[in-house]
């Protein structure tokens, strides 16, 4: 492992030495690459970025430097990337906010589709619907029946407006035809505390953060938000198979670059990113976050983002969440 790193450094150094004599135009990359992340340090986006960047640095032979530009649910970072020179030296980490911001924020200074060249979807993770043990419904079916009899009386918690925790519940209400009361908290920690204390009755938590509470009996696991059951909890049914067909919410991470980045550079970035994602260490670390590797093609990834934007536009409108 270590030897390999040295080998790469050596070969990179050798290449560098050769560059001036061999070609006037040096092969990409010749200087460090900026990897913009739309969240401050902390949180899964930052962790995923910092998991991949050492591998990318190794494969590309140049440092890939993570640049945290938190704020406005990734909109600040995305705007910086949209306006960056499309030369392959700026890449952007996409998160679900990339697809929901067009519906949540009225005035965006960029276009989530047109201004970007999509490289690959890095991975995704699903949420787990958990309830307080004192809450009577035990299954999705019971929950729907219970909620229909008590419109607006069931409280659900979230980690904030526009987060995947919040939008999971909005999609559920939209698809199942029920009405709950939303209680927003500042972040996943306080939201989960409120559920454990019974202040709210249900919560679509990030799977690894809630699964142990369900196992220890402090919470009750009802269903996962993936289309397929989670390998981490194969005994828990999906929402889709329990009476809300087609229901799916994922937290996802993806890589993109400014729109006019040269195709050859995009191809190189795609190749090396997928190679990094196939690394067993990276795979294991992402599993630790409750996620799975996707490593899709640029076309698949672009289609995925377009699909997400359309899906959430519908849900956000139906839920009456106002755009700013």
């Amino acid at each position: 492992m270590k030897l390999q790193v040295y080998a790469y450094i050596l070969s990179a150094a050798a290449l560098l030495g050769m560059v001036p004599t061999v070609a006037a135009q040096a092969p990409y990359p010749t200087r460090p690459i900026r990897f913009i992340v739309g969240f401050p340090p902390g949180g899964s986006n930052n962790i995923v970025a910092r998991m991949i960047s050492p591998k990318l640095s190794e494969y590309l032979g140049q440092q890939v430097v993570v640049d945290n530009r938190g704020g406005a649910n990734t909109a600040i970072a995305t705007e910086i990337a949209a306006n960056a020179t499309p030369d392959g030296y700026t890449i952007l980490m996409n998160a679900p906010g990339h697809a929901t911001n067009p519906s949540l924020i009225k005035k965006l200074n960029f276009d989530s589709i047109r201004d970007f060249a999509f490289i690959t979807q890095i991975g995704q993770a699903h949420n787990l619907l958990v309830t307080h043990p004192s809450f009577p419904p035990r299954s999705v079916q019971e929950l729907i029946a219970y909620s229909k009899q008590r419109p607006g009386q069931v409280n659900y918690g979230s980690s904030g407006i526009g987060t995947s925790v919040h939008l999971s519940a909005e999609l559920f209400q939209y698809m199942a035809g029920v009405k709950w009361l939303h209680v927003a908290y500042k972040g996943g920690g306080p939201g989960l505390v409120a559920l454990l204390a019974g202040e709210v009755s249900l919560y679509f938590g990030n799977l690894p953060t809630v699964i142990n509470h369900a196992r220890s009996g402090k919470l009750r696991a009802v269903a996962v938000t993936g289309l397929k059951r989670s390998p981490a909890a194969p005994d828990i049914p999906t929402v889709a198979e329990s009476g809300v067909p087609g229901f799916e919410v994922a937290t996802w991470w993806g890589l993109s670059a400014p729109a006019k980045t040269p195709p050859a550079i995009l191809a190189r970035l795609h190749k090396e990113t997928v190679r990094a994602l196939n690394d067993s260490g990276v795979r294991k670390q992402l599993q630790g976050l409750g996620g799975e590797i996707v490593a899709s093609t640029p076309e698949q990834y672009a289609a995925y983002v377009r699909n997400e934007i359309a899906k959430w536009a519908k849900v956000i409108k139906a839920a009456g969440i106002k755009s700013q």
Partner: peptide, 21 residues
């Protein structure tokens, strides 16, 4: 004791533990 983060820093430590398995 509960696996609950009381602050952002604690959430990060929690992530560190999760990723350690």
């Amino acid at each position: 004791t509960l696996g609950l983060p009381a602050s952002a820093t604690m959430a990060l430590l929690l992530a560190a533990m999760t990723m350690q398995g």
